[in-house]
């Protein structure tokens, strides 16, 4: 990976262009402040959202491989390091595991290449935005760019599952005791609320079949964060955001818990940078984060 921040090829994925627009826009605005450009791939397809766990399903790898090919060609053409930036945790997990599988198993790569029109050479390294901040920019440098006093924010860092697991393929952080989001929040100057449920599952796609179970799991996570003193919770995953935020509409399950806003980590970063947040879709969250943001930082959607 290059030492100098610059233009980096970026894969958004479907959710980033629809339900998580605020995540993408806040990430892009922050990148501009930090000094790098998220250069969206011109021709991209859905990654398939969930990586196939069974080994006999190579069809599931064709979509993510096609994305890696697009990134590889872009990097070769522009003579930049073959990195591919992602924001969505599902996309990150799927692309990263595909990168790993094709790097480990040349036969698999040959089979998929025989099926696709274009061939993949295997050079791309998939990087998450958080990882880029940690390893290329550095959290120390990030801290120097913070303009807002964030010390009143009591924030629970929530990791969920797919940002970290499986560790031997993703390798971003320890799946049981991660620190990357903690360190990110530390750099912003927030009060970091360490809580036991930080790596518990929110229920994921089970929301399609057993929404009541997702409600219960979301409640357990938020009740835990609340007990440890958090006022808000940050995540990098649009499905965690949706499950944790929208489940709070279940008034029976959440009877004894006040609404807790669920923010993308980049939305909080934008606040810390003192950016105009009016395109960051904060008003679209089920639990309105604006009262908390106004109270602690003076930021609101009308500011500046």
């Amino acid at each position: 990976m290059s030492d100098k921040p610059a233009r980096i090829p970026y894969y958004p994925g479907c959710t980033m262009k629809t339900k998580a627009l605020g995540f993408e826009r806040s990430a892009m605005d922050c990148a501009e402040v930090i000094g790098f450009e998220m250069d969206e791939l011109k021709d991209w397809n859905c990654c398939g959202a969930s990586y196939p766990l069974t080994k006999d399903n190579l069809m599931g790898l064709t979509a993510p491989t096609n994305i890696l090919i697009e990134a590889e060609r872009r990097c070769q053409k522009e003579e930049v390091d073959p990195n591919l930036l992602t924001l969505c945790v599902f996309c990150y997990n799927t692309l990263k595991r595909t990168e790993f599988a094709l790097g480990q198993d040349k036969k698999k790569l040959e089979t998929i290449n025989a099926f696709l029109d274009r061939k993949y050479e295997g050079s791309v390294r998939v990087v998450h935005y958080l990882e880029y901040l940690r390893d290329v920019i550095g959290f120390d440098n990030l801290a120097k760019m913070v303009k807002t006093d964030m010390s009143k924010f009591k924030v629970a860092p929530y990791y969920g599952c797919l940002l970290l697991k499986p560790q031997k393929e993703i390798g971003l952080d320890d799946p049981e005791d991660p620190v990357i989001l903690h360190n990110f929040l530390d750099a912003l100057g927030c009060k970091v609320i360490d809580f036991p449920a930080q790596v518990d599952c929110c229920g994921s796609y089970l929301v399609m079949r057993e929404p009541e179970k997702v409600s219960k799991l979301s409640y357990d996570i938020l009740a835990d964060a609340n007990e440890y003193g958090a006022e808000t919770l940050v995540t990098a995953c649009p499905l965690c955001q949706s499950n944790l935020d929208q489940s709070q509409g279940d008034k029976v399950q959440f009877a004894d818990l006040d609404g807790m806003p669920i923010l993308y980590f980049t939305q909080l970063l934008a606040i810390a940078f003192g950016l105009d947040t009016k395109t960051h879709k904060l008003e679209e969250h089920h639990i309105d984060p604006l009262p908390l943001l106004k109270a602690h930082s003076g930021a609101d959607s009308e500011s500046k």
């Binding site: 339900k19 969505c88 994921s204 499905l239």
Partner: peptide, 21 residues
């Protein structure tokens, strides 16, 4: 499936659901 659910759910939930169910 309720239209409301499909309208408000992130694409990733629906696509994963397609794959798993």
């Amino acid at each position: 499936m309720s239209r409301d659910f499909l309208a408000r759910s992130p694409q990733m939930a629906i696509i994963s659901g397609f794959r798993k169910f």
